[in-house]
Simulated scan of single mutants.
Amino acid sequence: MEKEIYIIRHCEAKGQPVESELTERGIQQANDLAKFFSRIKIDQIISSPFSRAIQSIEPTSKEKKIDIVINESLSERKLSSRDLPDWLEKLKTTFEDMELKFDGGESSQEATYRAISVIDEIINSEHQSTIVVTHGNLMSLILKHFNDEFGFENWKSLSNPDVFQLKFKNNEFVYERLWKEDSK
């Protein structure tokens, strides 16, 4: 059976903490996502527990009359528990060394394993078409899992929001980027 997984990076938010909400622009983007998905059949919606992720998919959830399932495994990856002034350079190195881990943080490999566990659950479920709402770094690691060429520069080019479609058919995965600012 063919499966379609729409991986969404949340809309524009006011910050990085778990409770950060969407900006006014982010709220409009969430409504644009609902329009984008209005003609696409969706069976389930799974989201990171972060407020910005949930708020990004709420308009779609309401329109589709599908409850949002919260999954901790879709939470943003924690790079370190310490403030890293050079965090961007450190993040770049984690795309090159998947096992690299900073104080109190999670390696790219660890984050990938937990994210892919969600993808595996979807593949083994009865649902054919699923929306997964997560964060930029975790989205990048999911895509890197299926294409090792996906790296730091690809992460930098992601937008808020962003949408990739991951298709699973005949035991093969392919993905494509669907979101463009004129996708509305």
Rank of each mutant, 00 (worst) to 15 (best):
T93H: 07
K65V: 04
S80W: 06
V69M: 10
V69Q: 11
D83Q: 09
R82C: 09
F95N: 03
S81K: 10
L84S: 05
K90I: 11
I68F: 06
S73I: 03
I70M: 01
S81D: 14
E96G: 00
K90S: 05
I66H: 01
L84Q: 07
L79M: 06
M98A: 13
V69S: 10
D67R: 03
L91K: 04
V69W: 03
E76W: 02
K78I: 12
N71Q: 09
S75G: 06
L91N: 05
E76A: 07
S75E: 09
K92Y: 13
L79K: 07
L91E: 05
W87Y: 14
W87M: 03
T94A: 10
K92W: 10
N71L: 01
L88G: 02
D97P: 00
T93P: 00
L91G: 03
R82V: 11
S75C: 10
R82N: 14
T93M: 11
P85E: 10
L74P: 01
L88K: 13
D67T: 04
S81Q: 12
K78D: 00
L79H: 08
M98S: 14
M98R: 11
T93N: 09
L79Y: 04
I70T: 07
S80H: 10
K90F: 08
D86E: 14
L84M: 15
S80R: 08
D86F: 05
L79Q: 08
D97Q: 12
K65A: 13
I66S: 00
I70L: 07
E89S: 12
S75F: 08
S80F: 12
W87T: 02
S80K: 04
D86L: 05
W87V: 01
K90E: 13
E76M: 07
F95S: 05
K92C: 03
F95C: 05
R82L: 15
L84V: 15
S80A: 14
E72H: 09
W87P: 02
E72S: 08
E89A: 11
D97M: 06
D97H: 14
S75L: 12
K65Q: 14
D97R: 12
I70D: 00
D67V: 00
I70C: 00
K65I: 06
D86I: 05
R77C: 13
E89G: 09
E72P: 02
K65F: 00
I66R: 01
K92T: 01
S81A: 14
D86Q: 06
D97I: 07
